[in-house]
Amino acid sequence: MEHIQSVAADKVYRIFNIGATSVVSAEHEGVADAMAAAWNTCAEVLPCKAVVLIDKTHFTRPLVEKSGYFALQFPTVGVARETMYLGSVSKNDNAKKLEESGAEFFKMPGWEIPLMKGCAAWVICKHIPRPENEKDFDLFVGEVVAAWADERVFKDGHWLFETAPDDMKTLHYVAGGHFYKIGEALDVPGY
């Protein structure tokens, strides 16, 4: 917790720019869940709006719909196993999913949404209902209302993967338990 810092509203979109796998979490009336989601992005810069796909079958989805909020967090190599478990096991089938995942959760002051430890960044969104998109495409939209990042990997609106240890690099899911961790920086001269 000592390295978690707020992210300025005009820099939140940069969290999404790297295309990292996310964990979606939500809570309603004391019931919480978290699931991995590879498909997420920024849809608008300021105020930042995020989109994420949440399938109809996921336990997390009605929690988002009922509470009106969801969190997106961006797990690192250090929590790859936990992330895979959260994306592979449904709370519809295992009521103890969160406890058995090995993931640890915390809450930021003023928010009731569980956030996963070991992530590079955390974003809380207010759900903007789009019934047709949700029904037809499982596409959820949210306006970012709070954001934090671990200053060892994201500080002053910039990712710092060049200096971050490997276990703090973000995960990028492909399929079948296969991820990539973010790679080396490449700067194009003149920009």
Results as ranks from 00 to 15, higher is better:
residue 137 F to N: 04
residue 59 F to H: 15
residue 100 E to I: 01
residue 174 V to N: 05
residue 100 E to G: 02
residue 100 E to T: 02
residue 143 E to V: 02
residue 177 G to E: 08
residue 82 E to K: 06
residue 98 L to C: 02
residue 99 E to A: 15
residue 118 G to K: 13
residue 108 M to S: 03
residue 102 G to N: 11
residue 88 S to D: 11
residue 136 D to Y: 04
residue 114 P to H: 12
residue 48 C to H: 00
residue 166 D to M: 08
residue 178 H to T: 07
residue 63 L to K: 14
residue 82 E to T: 01
residue 59 F to E: 11
residue 115 L to H: 11
residue 169 K to Q: 04
residue 111 W to V: 06
residue 103 A to K: 07
residue 149 A to E: 11
residue 135 K to M: 05
residue 89 V to R: 12
residue 140 F to Q: 06
residue 177 G to K: 07
residue 104 E to T: 13
residue 174 V to A: 05
residue 62 P to I: 04
residue 78 G to K: 05
residue 171 L to M: 05
residue 108 M to H: 06
residue 122 W to A: 03
residue 129 P to D: 06
residue 136 D to K: 12
residue 86 L to Y: 05
residue 158 H to I: 03
residue 122 W to S: 06
residue 127 H to A: 09
residue 159 W to P: 00
residue 151 E to L: 06
residue 64 V to R: 13
residue 92 N to V: 10
residue 130 R to T: 13
residue 151 E to T: 05
residue 71 A to I: 09
residue 144 V to E: 03
residue 54 I to S: 07
residue 100 E to S: 08
residue 54 I to R: 04
residue 165 P to N: 10
residue 69 Y to Q: 15
residue 88 S to K: 11
residue 112 E to P: 04
residue 169 K to D: 05
residue 112 E to S: 15
residue 45 V to P: 00
residue 119 C to T: 13
residue 111 W to G: 00
residue 152 R to A: 12
residue 162 E to F: 05
residue 88 S to M: 10
residue 179 F to P: 04
residue 85 Y to A: 02
residue 64 V to Q: 13
residue 169 K to I: 03
residue 130 R to P: 01
residue 84 M to H: 13
residue 67 S to T: 09
residue 170 T to C: 14
residue 172 H to D: 06
residue 117 K to T: 12
residue 71 A to W: 08
residue 158 H to Y: 09
residue 71 A to F: 10
residue 125 C to R: 02
residue 88 S to W: 10
residue 159 W to Q: 00
residue 95 A to P: 12
residue 117 K to N: 13
residue 62 P to M: 07
residue 165 P to E: 14
residue 166 D to N: 08
residue 99 E to M: 10
residue 111 W to N: 04
residue 125 C to Q: 03
residue 73 Q to M: 15
residue 45 V to F: 09
residue 138 D to W: 13
residue 80 A to N: 02
residue 128 I to Y: 01
residue 59 F to Y: 15
residue 172 H to P: 06
residue 125 C to P: 04
residue 141 V to D: 00
residue 69 Y to E: 15
residue 113 I to N: 12
residue 95 A to I: 12
residue 80 A to L: 07
residue 140 F to R: 06
residue 131 P to W: 08
residue 160 L to N: 12
residue 69 Y to N: 10
